[in-house]
Design a protein around this nucleic acid. Structure first.
Lengths: 225, 225
DNA sequence: GACTACCATCTCAGAATGTGAGACGCGATG
DNA sequence: CATCGCGTCTCACATTCTGAGATGGTAGTC
């Protein structure tokens, strides 16, 4: 039986209630030194803690990891209705991007019903230095002040796009909502045409997120005292 | 380096975002087969899952474990009414911290209703050497004698806070009750303004704890593996 | 105060599992 | 069709894990 299996059995045992080492030994079937060693190793990482009476209990890192787990599920789901509305209002393809290092990744993609349309595959990695979503995710001042950024023919000839930032309560850009299509329809001033709609969609995503869904950020901790 | 250490590094890497195996290898420094094997072992227990694109992501068991971890915090339940009162009386954000090693961890966080407010995430780890709560949890004599500590712009510019210790019958500092907000509202002497209210809240928490308030978590969560 | 029982924690020789270089199969790309 | 990069698998060797027994501390009992 692997160490991962045993460690998980320790966490599972503690899920019910905090317990002394002896109870942990009984609950997991592990030997006393093994249960002790694994609990201490998990404690070192915050997955286990000692309560007031010195008993082993689930640690606070699990709260953070649990939130990250549920947040990770929810950004796309939270955003989907707003993307549908954006796609329908504008008639163009709508996407949701997040930044990953020096690139952006498409988390959700709804295609226009037009025969001629832009297609971005969910999971696709795109450059950060081109396209309106790249500007937003890089935090370009113009994009943030105006509330949207536009691009024409940057990533691909004949394609224009508009993006707006999704910001978290701390004001950090967490994602970008985008709409994109051929220049023939979007015109060379797509921001004028779609900016307001994209911003509304981004606000709707923020509201959906703020209703109990939180975007997991690096480090987990927030601003404050 | 132990298997528990490596497993936790996998979970920590996935906390930020779902990632393909190659990214996991990069983020954790593990070899490809090792990262794969550990991720699959964690997946078998539900601590890791695959998302729509087949990438590794934090699993839903973490949500349950995180909930159990926070449910187990009887201190939080006991403190909550006092924190609500404190937040309402002062109009500022209120928090509860405990000391964990050389840091402090936020167990409860109630936000002010002002548009401009300080936000601390539950589970966030903050430094012990900065902020009024740090002083209280370090057991600074001044803080204990006066009954509260204040700080202005220590951890973050423009933010002030006041904290009071929650002590057990043996006189040990078990937690810190805090209120925090922008200096514009709290003034540069937040202790004068809020000290009495924070101390009252801390006393209320002590009384609630002394009454043996305990809240059992709902059902204890699902079974493991 | 002495004694006993039980706790958490530690040690270390031997056992068991974990490791990772290399291989494999698959799908995408040019 | 060839190449590349992905996830996954194999297995000889290496490293870590294991747990019986020991240790020290604390609480309870007499």
């Amino acid at each position: 039986m692997g160490v991962v299996d045993k460690s998980v059995s320790v966490l599972a045992a503690l899920e019910d209630r905090p317990m002394a080492l002896g109870d942990l030994v009984t609950a997991t079937g592990l030997s006393r030194p093994t249960a002790h060693r694994l609990a201490v190793a998990l404690e070192a990482h915050g997955l286990v803690r000692r309560d007031d009476e010195g008993r082993f209990a689930l640690g606070l890192r699990l709260v953070a990891l649990g939130r990250a787990a549920s947040d990770g599920l929810s950004l796309v789901e939270a955003a989907r209705p707003a993307l549908v509305t954006l796609r329908d209002e504008t008639g163009e393809s709508a996407q949701l991007y997040v930044r990953e290092g020096d690139a952006r990744v498409c988390l959700a993609s709804l295609e226009s019903l037009h025969g001629l349309r832009t297609i971005v595959r969910v999971g696709a990695t795109l450059p950060l230095d081109r396209g309106s979503a790249g500007r937003v995710l890089r935090g370009e001042p113009d994009a943030l002040v105006r509330g949207w950024a536009e691009s024409v023919g940057e990533r691909e000839a004949g394609v224009a796009s508009v993006s707006a930032p999704v910001v978290d309560p701390e004001g950090r850009v967490r994602a970008a909502v985008s709409v994109s299509g051929p220049v023939e329809r979007t015109t060379r001033a797509p921001g004028t045409r779609y900016g307001a709609a994209v911003v509304r969609a981004a606000r709707a995503v923020e509201e959906a997120i703020g209703r109990g869904v939180r975007v997991a950020g690096p480090g987990g901790g927030g601003g404050g005292v």
